[in-house]
């Protein structure tokens, strides 16, 4: 293998890192907010049906088709072309981000739901008898416990979203994968280029894995530290 070629390609692909990080971070942020909303929606009967249908559709279909549907499909509707959102929905960046947010929300809402279900009833009752309001119980007891419970599954979801951002390269965006794809069609030296790109993604995912272990230890010290009785 040609090391200087790999080095050149590595640097070239790193040029797409800001876009990858941007889409990754924003889709996780938007997805988390929407996921919280979906779980709040589930407190009403109709809302529960709506949330279930949403999750069913977005988890049951490939992300790629969701991206294409938003990027190519929405333009077919006159009311969208004439709406204030059109300047955004015309751009591949916003379409890609929107698809990632919607997709992440479906998975994250299920992870959060699992976490919420695992909160012990007694911990909530103890909050109620001490006079806490619903909001205080949510903020001080339910959410902290649910988030701790959901953390391992969520760290997998964070890594899944990193990998998911690679799909925006199919709608002309020049993220790391988009740059790699372009470089392949110029040079036809696919193996070196793809391995360089893969190494960067792998490094990022390993950082997340380490980070999540660290956060888990910080948030749930009772699971790791042993004190003498």
């Amino acid at each position: 293998m040609d090391l200087s070629f790999i080095g050149t390609m590595f640097l070239r692909i790193l040029g797409g890192l800001p876009l990858t990080l941007n889409l990754w971070g924003l889709s996780l942020l938007g997805g988390a907010i929407l996921a919280l909303g979906l779980n709040l929606l589930r407190t009403t009967r109709v809302g529960d049906k709506v949330a279930s249908a949403y999750v069913f559709v977005f988890r049951g279909t490939p992300l790629l088709i969701q991206i294409f549907m938003i990027y190519f499909g929405l333009a077919g509707f006159g009311f969208i072309r004439h709406s204030v959102l059109w300047p955004f929905l015309r751009e591949p960046y916003w379409c890609g981000l929107l698809a990632l947010v919607l997709n992440d929300a479906a998975y994250t809402s299920e992870i959060l739901r699992g976490g919420l279900r695992a909160v012990p009833r007694g911990a909530v009752e103890a909050g109620r008898v001490s006079g806490m309001s619903r909001f205080t119980i949510l903020r001080r007891i339910t959410l902290p416990l649910a988030i701790r419970q959901a953390l391992p599954a969520y760290s997998s979801e964070v890594i899944s979203m990193l990998k998911a951002t690679a799909l925006v390269s199919t709608i002309t965006l020049m993220d790391m994968t988009g740059i790699a794809r372009a470089a392949i069609s110029e040079t036809w030296r696919a193996v070196e280029i793809l391995l360089s790109a893969a190494a960067i993604y792998l490094a990022l995912s390993l950082i997340v894995t380490q980070l999540s272990v660290w956060i888990e230890r910080r948030l749930s010290p009772w699971q790791f530290q042993r004190t003498n009785r």
């Binding site: 790699a180 793809l194 391995l195 893969a198 993604y201 792998l202």
Partner: peptide, 18 residues
């Protein structure tokens, strides 16, 4: 660890082009 951390589409490209 590698398969968990690398985008699926890159692996497909790798098999197809590579």
């Amino acid at each position: 660890a590698v398969m968990r951390g690398v985008p699926e589409i890159l692996v497909i490209y790798l098999f197809y082009f590579g």
